[in-house]
Design a protein around this nucleic acid. Sequence first.
DNA 1: CCGGTTATACTCGTGGCACGAGCATAAGAC
DNA 2: GTCTTATGCTCGTGCCACGAGTATAACCGG
Lengths: 394, 394
Amino acid sequence: MARDRPERARDARWRAAADVLAQVRREPGITRASVARRLNLSTGSTTEITARLRDLRLLTETPAPVRGRGRPTTVLAPHPSGPLVLAAELRQEDWRCAVATLDGRVAHLQTGRHAGREPGPVLAALRQVLDRSWRRYGERVRAVSLAVAATFVDGDLVQASSLGWGPVDLTGLSAGTGLPLLVGNDATLAGVAEARTGSAAGAATALHLLVEVGIGGALIVGGHPVTGAGGAGGEYGHVPFGDRRLRCPCGARGCWDLEVDGRALARHLGDPPPADPHTYMREVLDRAPRDAAAARAVATVASALASGIAGLVNAHAPDVVTLGGFAGSLRAAAPAGFDEAYAGGLMTFRRAQPPPVLDAAHGDEGALRGAVAVGLDHVTSEAALASWAERHPR
Amino acid sequence: MARDRPERARDARWRAAADVLAQVRREPGITRASVARRLNLSTGSTTEITARLRDLRLLTETPAPVRGRGRPTTVLAPHPSGPLVLAAELRQEDWRCAVATLDGRVAHLQTGRHAGREPGPVLAALRQVLDRSWRRYGERVRAVSLAVAATFVDGDLVQASSLGWGPVDLTGLSAGTGLPLLVGNDATLAGVAEARTGSAAGAATALHLLVEVGIGGALIVGGHPVTGAGGAGGEYGHVPFGDRRLRCPCGARGCWDLEVDGRALARHLGDPPPADPHTYMREVLDRAPRDAAAARAVATVASALASGIAGLVNAHAPDVVTLGGFAGSLRAAAPAGFDEAYAGGLMTFRRAQPPPVLDAAHGDEGALRGAVAVGLDHVTSEAALASWAERHPR
DNA sequence: CCGGTTATACTCGTGGCACGAGCATAAGAC
DNA sequence: GTCTTATGCTCGTGCCACGAGTATAACCGG
């Protein structure tokens, strides 16, 4: 975002406007008066800012339902010809694509199964879906945001093991449109969604952990993920919480990954490594209530999950931990073992008030909603608003 | 920092001024022309901002040594009657106290040995030192910043094992002065110093690890530590990278702490747990070059350190890792074992360009310099500048 | 039904910042 | 001694947020 010319002021002028839009997103359907209170804005400033946002087709104001005395206020909502974000998620078997408005609501959701296994056809199909959306919405679309269960370095997909992909060039998804393409790991984005509007809403520091094949996660500080250099962080599955004698496909040893998914269950049950650890885990979880061996294996895995979580809590002191994917099911299947391992792994001084461990609120919508959030962050940034304003002179 | 009245604008107006002061701190001795270039400020704005900062006794301008053609510019430096920060560090045996100016330089350093072992006398002595400083500098002192090898929760010291302290009330150190008392863990603050002006300078994400008794550390993002809820994070010594059969005094099992300090060396050498693990480690490191058993123990510990670091690198993808305390010595004593364990613990895709692991640049000054940095962050915040300006009308 | 109460909206003058264009200035270079 | 280069200074402009004052739209109670 570095610029040649001094344009600090151009962007800074949109600071309050960006804050208002962020507030609308935090509390969809919020009234103008509430926004003023939350942001410590004077009524005069609020009048001016909302008028400006209305003129720019960013917001609309509709009369708010009256509640008690006082002059009625208005509800702030996205403008019907305001900016949009296209968010998409590539999952193991299928894709989903959403069109989202400034308040973070999904206006239009499409889903479908992948055209094949190879990146080429899958991406071509997704590009077609995206193309349809921006033929339909045109200039209103301001960003494309994509979630994939993959590792990204500097915005490049370097590996997506659940899809069976190595390095893949994603730039074709937005090439020729001039739109920014934002990409992110699915667990990271699910964590963002939880921290913004899910079970961790309002937490300054939140830890999200997602068990699918292996374990992914994200530390979210102030609503933004801590993703490290090039966004390659969040590989919580590859910290050595496990048995050092086990070698992980990632190249390291003793990875936590190996202790918490279907492969771990199979090891404990004496089965060969499952071809599809995801399905295998679902089967074992299903039969655990009436199969003592399965129940023991599940309890072992739940303990391994919980003690690792405790270690991460010691390291990061999140306000709350959220569980996605199978993580919630594992805890539900072996609550006593989970709780014991969690408490036992905490430092004594943390045990008085340990961070609550909550199931994710967004379920399997998390990654997509996180992608929406990141896309909207981009669209409501000061710089993006300044640029939108230049395209929409009053 | 929430306010009753709308004062957004009051603070926002100091944004550029705060940026200028931050730049002066990043590059002490910087010229005005350079600041303008770095911050994308027009020359007109720069003239105005520096004039304002001069009038407010925040900066001085002195002619810069001429270099080549062009109109000579000026060097920006702290004003001789500008704000100051008192920074102090409580260490195991002694204390140190610094008076720092806006460019982050330490104007006056005092040190001394503790008056006793109990918190009361130690804090009373420190308070006397602080009192002398602000009798001398008066209103110029704007904040007190303290580093201790301790765990803090919500600004309260809950435990300082190296000092043998339980919960201690530190508020007496600034009571009655009206000055904010900022406190922080020594390893965290040392990490801040490395990330700002040390070996990790310029890194967006940096990981600092400090081995003394056990291991502490901090993840620093954008120059600010990720310290979690109540600032209680950064306990990297208590993630379960070690042997689960070992119980840690912290209450958990398998803590990394137990694998990387003097206690670990004693275990590997068959010695009883040392009363002073710090001194014990120094002795073993000293004799390792001529004692094969000591060398083996050191190599084992260095490997445990390196493989844990690799796990944290997998999780956080820092741009750089810095080593403080004994961590650098351990690596130096067993470089091959360290490097092998580090590379072996990384995910394959990270091995092509692993984050460099560097010795800390600030040595044992890190925590104090980090405390200075945090204190100056406070003093040069927009709100603090606005408040300073109100006390110094032009 | 009508003034009182309450909460919010609108108006307008003020202060203040950063910009940009134009001009001024101090050094080295030829 | 002029030219070039880099920087500083001045001033008019645009714009934002504030705050005080005024206006408005609901409810409330007699």
